[in-house]
Design a protein around this nucleic acid. Structure first.
Lengths: 250, 250
DNA sequence: TAGTGGTCTAGACCACGAC
DNA sequence: TCGTGGTCTAGACCACTAT
């Protein structure tokens, strides 16, 4: 939370004293952290300040707070890997390359039974199915196979993926989506390998996503990347100093 | 932040009013959000309460706050994919299967030049190099190729990876590490394919990690999984309600 | 200078859990 | 009942930005 580090605040002073105790082993996972009252007495601050200090430690995952019980040093955390999943077009252009797209399929059709179940729609509901091949300076880099529920995302049928990607369109309409994601290594089938201009024995990285917003399934996408041309990279968390890299106003 | 939802707090009331305005399109990304002063007047709360409301929106990534300027609706975010990276042993045992490990290499040797550079140590520094094959109910599932700086992680040379994984040992010693991670699809080389009992043409998912703690590089690991037997799965963000699933005290 | 957010105080009432 | 954390008030001073 604290970005400006010119003069350490009382809150950060308290925070750091507890983190130091953890680093030094004086406080081990599961141990009871000082209570707000204790910190008030020890540091001569108001309770709000002590509260803030403990709360920020809690937000960063260092302690667990339980009303009526106390604060406790959190157990060691599994590594949480965070990766930004960007629009393929932005990603390519950020590298200074040229993005082109080719629509290989585009139809509105009835959902199959598993699709209807994934989208939680009626069995005779219509879904947009699109297959788009994305190229970076001419070289195939992503084969996008996507289903969208047109009633959840009005206007999606009119989108021209060569001009605006489905990803960008959906992000504009639903700025804060959520969903699930699975990454795996696969051998492409013959048709996909041909599309991606891959020789035999060339694997792919496959990213599958289900995107939800407002309680509805918006889209299910299967993105296939030639292994040699794409990786998923990210960091695992610095528990302190989360989410501070927001961009400034427009 | 708010876990108990029995009675909505004033803070959440303010929060929700802004989120509702965003959802309704009354506030678009880049727009100025109500100032603390404005919220004080509109909701009849103290400034601290308005401050908390805006701060929690900021922590969840919905708004950006700039001192001396104001609060602004954040631009739509790239999807942030979060995956928990677990100890392979825990993962296997969570599935109710049996984990076994076989040490294929274990030596303390001088760092190569690129290794010394990755670890930021002297060129003649010693590193522990270990190769461990992990099996799930007998089937190879992970080939772990790991370098550790034994001066950064004392005791690591004595670890028996068949009993305690390096991951678990390092997590115990450094509960809150950070690092980088890259996931890709690869074809294993012949030796790795043999170790993993893979036929020709069988791809692998490869996870590479650099783990740091206390400003030092602890370990560099390359984990190779048969594609058919492992995926990386996770969710992308629910911006609200972060990190609330801490486990209770010991 | 005026408006913004960052921090802090010294109280208060409440909900919850343990005893 | 007592101690815990959750929330809130009505002020205050400060740092920063824009004008």
């Amino acid at each position: 939370m604290s970005i400006a580090l010119n003069r350490p605040s009382r809150r950060d002073e308290i925070r750091d004293s507890i983190l130091a105790a953890v680093a030094a082993g004086a406080l081990a996972p599961g141990d009871r952290a000082p209570s707000e009252h204790e910190l008030v007495a020890r540091f001569g601050v108001s309770r709000m300040t002590a509260h803030h200090a403990l709360n920020s430690l809690s937000a960063d995952g260092y302690i667990t707070r339980v009303q009526g019980v106390g604060s406790f040093i959190a157990p060691p955390r599994a590594h949480v890997f965070e990766a930004k999943l960007l629009d393929i077009k932005d990603e390519i252009e950020a590298r200074g390359h040229r993005h082109t797209a080719e629509v290989l399929a585009h139809e509105v059709r009835c959902a199959s039974l598993p699709e209807a179940s994934a989208f939680a729609v009626a069995a005779d509901a219509k879904l947009l199915h699109a297959v788009v091949l994305h190229r970076e300076d001419g070289a195939p880099i992503q084969l996008e196979d996507r289903l969208v529920d047109p009633t959840a995302a009005p206007g999606v049928v009119e989108v021209d993926p060569c001009k605006e990607s489905y990803f960008a369109f959906l992000m504009a309409a639903f700025p804060y989506p959520e969903g699930d994601c699975v990454i795996r290594a696969v051998m492409p089938d013959l048709a996909a390998a041909r599309r991606l201009e891959l020789g035999p024995g060339q694997p792919c990285l496959q990213v599958e996503r289900v995107t939800r917003a407002g309680g509805r399934v918006l889209t299910v996408a299967r993105l296939l990347y030639p292994a040699a041309r794409h990786v998923v990279s990210g960091a695992f968390v610095p528990p302190a100093g989360h989410r501070q890299d927001r961009t400034p106003p427009a």
